[in-house]
Design a protein around this nucleic acid. Structure first.
Lengths: 130, 130, 130, 130
DNA sequence: GTGGTCTAGACCACC
DNA sequence: GTGGTCTAGACCACA
């Protein structure tokens, strides 16, 4: 696995695990690679893998059985969604807000456009149904 | 200049002109490169430059004196802003809204986070003033 | 034996007896130390031991043969369990419920987490069997 | 500050910050000690303080301004409550559930006792009002 | 064998 | 100066 420089490695590892889950490579209850094994495989420090697993556990994507290893939780899938949401709010939203002030667009304006967007979607749905 | 494949070249040229304006390389009233000269310089078809200039003229960033050339309008700077805003609303906003529904985030939530974001900015400003 | 200040001494003595039973130090039908002997051994007032034995007798963990002494009842083991349960419900549960309301956690939420907890236990068991 | 061995140091540091907040020693918007300063003061590795601050940031108790430092968020107080809830679910709940199975008490039984507990509370309230 | 914590020390980007 | 990431290596508890 190749890492890029734009994002911390431990987040890229967490992402990689999420991709495996979304791709259904692993199922709920499956044991995932041990911290040390994955560290050797990815050629990084075990601490770095640890941080990735820590994140995933806090987001209830995986859970731990002491002395045994990490396992996919039952609701790993929605957990991944929740995690993606957190990342979106922390990384993309600030950039989005900066752009708003740069272009002198108020949040009120965004709200209006959002409602228009939703309406157009709903119309599309209704036409399909008809 | 290098063009990328993700966006039409004529839009990239229009963007390049906007960058010149935002960077204050050209001033209101200045004559900008002729369609043919710029086409030679950028190694593209004159029609492509033409489409870019047309777009800029529609947005009142530049205007044309028949037989003489294109000139920066007096309010080129605010014009560029308006243009950027239009592009933003047509291209980025729909993607943004789609992502919101994908991650199950309401516009209300975005509004709250925007206010938080503004507060943290203001705090930074106030500390500077003190 | 050291007593702590947080709980009445007679309850701590009753607890100590229960520990002996749960640890299988004594068997059903065995005669346990006399009130006076235990009082001397633990360096407490015989009345205090008496109160402990009374409590244990109420919970049918021990029974009394007048003039002879106290004996472990046949179902001392389940009796201790029942006793522990009563104590748990009277002492720990109210604190637990208060904490729930303090942290704004609903009983429904606890139920869900309990089911998750049971699932993870079962998974561990199944793996052992395999 | 003295640390005990029963809990990781970084959690004790996070707790210490929470206590400061609950005690109103620090107010929303206040800058808290820098990672390095606190590390020197508490005689621990900066990484350890970093982990504590990381936790607090994820729980939206504090936020970061790049190159400046960490600050108390506007809703630090509710954030602390949310954090306490997480800790309760991760640490105390498992012990509670183990005790339930040890004493052979079903979750259904707990639910009933909870309702009784709530009723007794409400009656107390009503009597006060009358 | 598993994960969990901590230290020491390095390097980076941002302000 | 600030935080953020990573490595190397140590020690611990648990299974």
């Amino acid at each position: 696995m190749r890492f890029n420089d734009t994002q911390p490695i431990f987040l890229q590892i967490a992402d990689w695990v999420c991709e495996r889950i979304l791709a259904r490579d692993w199922s709920p209850g499956d044991r995932i690679p041990s911290v040390r094994d994955l560290a050797v495989e990815l050629e990084v420090n075990p601490n770095t893998v640890m941080r990735a697993y820590e994140r995933l556990q806090q987001n209830e994507v995986i859970f731990n059985k002491r002395g045994i290893g990490y396992f996919l939780s039952e609701d790993a899938y929605p957990g991944v969604l929740a995690m993606r949401k957190t990342e979106f709010c922390e990384q993309e939203l600030p950039l989005f807000f900066k752009k708003l002030s740069l272009l002198n667009i108020s949040i009120k304006e965004i709200e209006e456009k959002y409602n228009q967007f939703q309406n157009s979607l709903n119309q599309g749905e209704n036409e399909k149904e008809q």
